[in-house]
Design a protein around this nucleic acid. Structure first.
Lengths: 218, 218
DNA sequence: GGTTGTGAACAAATTCACAGCG
DNA sequence: CGCTGTGAATTTGTTCACAACC
């Protein structure tokens, strides 16, 4: 949540860069050469001033009167995000979610390779998911070292999550994506992001309920 | 993203309520009667002033010198979030992720029932996942009416997502959780939240890269 | 004493509006 | 002219610090 190193780029901007990247990839696929902040904003679901302000943090990548060069901007944002090379990841917890993540094709095209799969249950160790053999949690450190992994994904049940995070950190992982509905405590310098599916739904119900009370539903 | 009805409660506060709820449920499970803002903050991964300010938007639920009554606060937050009853949901798209979501037990305990599963592929229609029969996308509207569904989860491939959203809205759904990596365009009054797994990882790589450049890795 | 509830100070993020440049 | 880049204005969110209260 807290940025490991403050840096001079606002957190809110960083969180939007991947969205711009996605939009730019679509534009590149359509062979569009340039794009205006307005069009890019529309594709990213934000407004044009925000796009320009966000991009201005990295320098002047656009041309007045013309717009932004798609390929050039694509390259710059990739560079800013550290996506000039693929990142090997390990997924810990081969339950429903872990398996789905392992099988999810969307990572490969966007810079991430599932290099290792791990579970604490020896019954699952040795099976193959999405072409990767499942290893035991005890081997985490050696897998991390061997594959040069710096990103860990936690898809375990809640009670196991903190322990797994501790082991990841001990093994040298510095970035964690946590799907378990618990708050992890980690030392300074470790980045954690969390995705709690029930939380997202609960936020939706808040607005749903409000609408029923305040507005005309239909 | 934009709140359907502005309301008088800050968006940032709303997004934290589910996290407090989770913490309070843990406290209730341990039979703790009261909790201080400090303790609650620690469990939620925020600071105490924020907890107090957040809760103050709903009135004075605490007792000075003592703290907050766990059960009472639990009830109030549930009420604010509209979690006094369960919410029937439909998941559209029975690929890896859709199936994992259908099987994920974490929803039931937190207020959500998977009432219907839908796919566009007739080969999948009729099979049963997590005890629910998969229906065809054509039957979405009747399922929504029949089960009184107001929350839709999109777990389809990107190109299908906007069409599915349109059909959901036409069927009367007003809250959408979107896992497809595209920006949905929806009319006013419809709430959308998105979860893009690759985006989360890409945000992590930004800080990872920075750390390597600026700080001492270990 | 201990802890809440909250105005006031501060910080972050967004939006405006327009000068500056191609 | 069109569109970027950016200071200034505004809005939103966070934190401080302490009076009010149990």
């Amino acid at each position: 949540m807290a940025p490991a190193i403050p840096g001079d780029i606002p957190e809110a901007t960083v969180a939007r860069l991947p969205v711009y990247l996605r939009a730019l990839q679509d534009l590149a696929d359509e062979n569009l050469g340039t794009v205006s902040s307005e069009r890019l904003a529309e594709m990213a679901g934000v407004n044009a001033a925000k796009v320009r302000k966000d991009l201005s943090h990295f320098g002047s990548y656009g041309t007045r009167g013309v717009g932004y060069d798609v390929e050039y901007l694509l390259f710059q944002i990739r560079r800013e995000l550290g996506l000039t090379h693929d990142w090997p990841c390990v997924i810990v917890g081969m339950g429903n979610l872990g398996q789905a993540l392992a099988n999810y094709g969307g990572f490969r095209d966007r810079g991430f390779v599932v290099a290792a799969l791990v579970d604490a249950d020896r019954a699952k160790v040795g099976s193959t998911i999405a072409g990767v053999e499942v290893s035991h949690l005890d081997d985490l450190a050696s897998l991390v070292r061997h594959h040069n992994i710096s990103i860990g994904v936690i898809a375990t049940p809640s009670p196991a999550a903190q322990g797994v995070a501790d082991q990841m950190i001990a093994a040298g992982i510095s970035s964690i994506l946590n799907f378990a509905p618990v708050v992890l405590s980690v030392p300074e310098g470790i980045s954690v992001r969390k995705v709690d599916l029930a939380v997202e739904l609960q936020i939706l119900t808040f607005y749903n309920e409000r609408r029923a009370v305040v507005g005309s539903a239909d």
